[in-house]
Every structure is written in structure tokens, then in C-alpha cells.
Amino acid sequence: MDYLRKKDYKKMDLMLLIDEAQGSDWVALEELLRRHSGIIYSTLYHLGPSGQNIDDLSQEVLMRIAKSIKSLKKKEHFKLWMNQIIYNVFYDDLRRKKRKPNMFSIDSFYDEPSEFQSKEIEDTSIHPDEKIKNFELDVLIRKSIRELEEPFREVVVLRELQGLSYEQIARILDTNIGTVKSRIARARAKLQEKLKDYLD
């Protein structure tokens, strides 16, 4: 019974799921959080190259979503709303850390090659050479995003990972669309330079 119930929630349309979660259905809320936990983690991970504890921050975002899901007025705005929470959690934490320098190392686990090397990629459809090439490219992209200055990194994550519109990004960053537009263009120019070997 429980199993069947869970399965239904897994397939449930996002808007319906939000509806149920807002109606105090905790299974729906759990599924809603579970469904977004990965992208929340990735977003925080890519936003912050400064060794913040991504696990803790992701938890905090999930908690805030759970606590305030009822205050979300328009379900269609869930993605924007979620990103506003991510952004707030991230920068609250960063501000706290900045007041206490040397609390964290700049190159914590982000560059540890073991993180990736230790994991065998179980995809037999990809030729080994291809795997290595993809792996190298992944590492390079990750590094390139990390090396961007904060305003450029932000827009890349919000645009390419979260798929938000310029207007939504402008709202989150509390700026105007023109600024978002030019930052994205400049961020891309920088990334093109860093990834030029892969773009020709």
C-alpha cells in the first residue's frame, strides 16, 4: 500500500505535487523535496567554489522549502521561488564565512581528483576513450565555471543549470534584464575562451 502510494507521487505532475504539499500532505512534500534535491545541490556546488559545506546548505534549502511551501502563492513560480531560497541561503552563509576568515580552505574537495577517479562510470555504450574525453571535459568545464568571477558564475548557473529566463534571473539577483543579458554574454565569452579546444 505504502509502496503504491509512493509510486504515484513519483509520477505526479509538479503542480499537483505542490498543491498536495501545500495541503500538508507530507508524502507529497517529501517527493517534492526529493525531486529537487539534486538540482539544489548542483546549484549550490557551482555557485560556491569557496569550500562551503554544500550538504549543510542543501539541507538548509530543503528545510526552508518545507517550512514555507504554504507561503508560495503561485505554484507556477515554484522554480523562481526555490532559486530565491537557494540564493539567500548561499549568500547568508557566505556573509557569515566572510566575517570569519580562514574558516575554510579555498580548495577543499572540489579539485580532488579521487572524487571522480574512484567512481567507475557504468555506461558500456560509451567507448573508453570517449569516457576519458568526457571526463576531461567535465573537469575542465567545472574548473572554468569555478574560475569565473562571482557575477558571471551566478548567471551561468541560473541560466544553464536552472534554465531560468533573463527576467527571472534579474529578479533573483535584484538587477535589471540588461545587466543579466550582458553578464551572460560576457560569461559565455570567457567560457568560450577557456573551452576553445572543444568548440571548434
Partner: peptide
């Protein structure tokens, strides 16, 4: 570039953490 980044973010379940 746009597709590379999209692909990177989508496939980035590789991230063990």
C-alpha cells in the same frame, strides 16, 4: 557552448557527493 554546458549540468550525476 550552450549545449556543452547543458550536457555537463545534466550528466553531472557523476558528482559523487
Amino acid at each position: 557552448l550552450h549545449y556543452l554546458l547543458k550536457k555537463y549540468f545534466a550528466g553531472e550525476s557523476l558528482l559523487e557527493h
